[in-house]
Design a binder for these strands. Sequence first.
DNA 1: GTTGGCACTCAGTAGAGTGGAGTGCCAAAC
DNA 2: GTTTGGCACTCCACTCTACTGAGTGCCAAC
Lengths: 363, 363
Amino acid sequence: MPRAHNSSGPPRPSEELDGRRAAILDAVVAEYVETAQPVGSAAVARSAGVGVSPATVRAEMVALEREGYLTQPHTSAGRIPTDLGYRFFVDHLSEPGVLGPTQRSQVARFFSQVRGEMEEVLERTSALLAELTSHAAVVVGPSHDTARIVSAQVVRLASRVGLVIAVLDDGAVEKATVEFDDDLADESLSVASAALAERFVGLALREVRAEEPIGLDPLSASIVTRSLEAVASIAERREPEHVFIGGSSRIASSFDAVETVRSVLATLEQQLVVVHLLNDVLDSGLSVAIGGEHGYEPLASCAVIVAPIAIEGAPSGVVGILGPTRMNYPEAMAAAEVVSSKLSRRFASVRHGESDPDEPRRG
Amino acid sequence: MPRAHNSSGPPRPSEELDGRRAAILDAVVAEYVETAQPVGSAAVARSAGVGVSPATVRAEMVALEREGYLTQPHTSAGRIPTDLGYRFFVDHLSEPGVLGPTQRSQVARFFSQVRGEMEEVLERTSALLAELTSHAAVVVGPSHDTARIVSAQVVRLASRVGLVIAVLDDGAVEKATVEFDDDLADESLSVASAALAERFVGLALREVRAEEPIGLDPLSASIVTRSLEAVASIAERREPEHVFIGGSSRIASSFDAVETVRSVLATLEQQLVVVHLLNDVLDSGLSVAIGGEHGYEPLASCAVIVAPIAIEGAPSGVVGILGPTRMNYPEAMAAAEVVSSKLSRRFASVRHGESDPDEPRRG
DNA sequence: GTTGGCACTCAGTAGAGTGGAGTGCCAAAC
DNA sequence: GTTTGGCACTCCACTCTACTGAGTGCCAAC
């Protein structure tokens, strides 16, 4: 997988790092992720995989700093990985990263117990992922763009208030209340429902167009017209995919600066932005966006990990982890991977009417 | 309105504060809310409503401290209101508190423009309230406990997967996917839908009981049975009222201690806890709970302001504001009041099929 | 090329000194 | 007797200084 981001920092490595430098960089990342303190040459030399003295490490660190992988908070401090350093670390992970046994059983337990509608599952999954990683987690459900309407009807809530309901074949239900000028007769409602069903079943939401009904009595016609408008307005409002955010309180523990915490949380509040962010990262072909790579200023000190949810091969949402750049990438990536694939399988099997392997068949 | 909380701090005022002490307390609260700095006697003496010298103010402040209304971070610092001090301040507000013109027009604009289903309105209202007050805001919609089913049906999502849909007369739609052992025939679906409608329309969700259908062909009977179970399970799951939280990022600006921020945010993540908190406060007859008054430890440094949403006199949800005890109570209370009453009116009129006064009739 | 030795740098900490905001007390004024 | 100005006192917050130690960069020796 080629590195796909286009950083513009002046110092760029002329060639790949040799094994020793890579090992030193790895050691710095590992140590810094754990301690949050700048890492000195002694600590690196002590770490496994680096068989040289501190003096040699120092020389290499100078090179790594010149090439932009490390930085020094100040002279006479240890080194900290730069975004580029993390990038190299992530791109050259030797092992895919695994979850601990506790986490694995947590995931297994979750997916064997969770029940209910997709929305509820996704919501709870975001909490699971946050719990697993100790970072904020985002789960975006499938877009309803391609889902087709399997049922459309209008029912009466009050004498002059109706509710138009469209059921999509992915299990979503869209609705809109409509106020009418006249009392709703049962008969008109049935006629209108039938007309709605006839026109809309089989269409995707965005294919819905409001059009004049023909050949109906005036009252039913007006109901149909208003209901058509309502369905069309649902499509227009194009309610973006539902976004579920779990563990946002973890953000507070991740950054020292209160202002950073505030701005990251504020960004998370804008669900549309979050969806775009995740999709951008996904589209760029990366599974990790570090620091400025994603281009969202307020999240410049964050790393984003994404993993697509794919139902029958079709991209159907995404799970994401949002934490400080100083995060345990292998673990977080593994968590995102596992959870997204579990979700994918869960929904694929539901759609097929097969039972999920995780979900014990109920008697 | 008598003070309804039962604090257990040892120092309690033997009698009410006289006018001067009250004025001094008010001045301390006002100043501290604005500056976040301990307030000295000079500042109090300078403030309008207190016509005495700093020396006199000092003497009174000693008394106020002895009686538990004020506290001193350290000798030779100014005074800070205690929770009891804020309580007195709130209980003895002379004017009800008003919103500024900007805020008023913001509210007016919002309610004249906002459209869509109740959930969407509530969601956006929580953002409005957060914006108005610069604090986190919570909006809890009406419970569906008493809502009656106006429509029930089952539709096919896949050959062996159905979706049971129940429409409630408050406009909510509940659903549950059901997996069947056999392919779903159109006819069985109609039969099952009819059976569901016959049994459930008119009932409240919690009145729904799974019962054996009689007099149906085996396939339809099994669909009905499973669907009945599904509806019953919806009722059991008793999805709590939807909770909408806006502006949680404001928490980060409200407290100095990161740990406080984290724990408050973590509490907000538990939506059930938030609902209980608001309802507890509401039930206690208060509109404000300050510091420890509500009994939720992690929110001990917060104040909670609530205002009920009442549709046709029936309690139908609540709006809340969550901020530091050092908050502008009159303004926040006014905001909660205005927003809750606007919401109440909006939904009352929708239910009646009348147009809301805020909402311009569309041509 | 690698290493130990060494001088150097600089954040962080601790201690001393200072300024100032604010208090508590008291005697004089009202 | 209530209020007030005066005054000594307290103690935080800030600054300055000195010191420590982690960690570096350089260099000569291996």
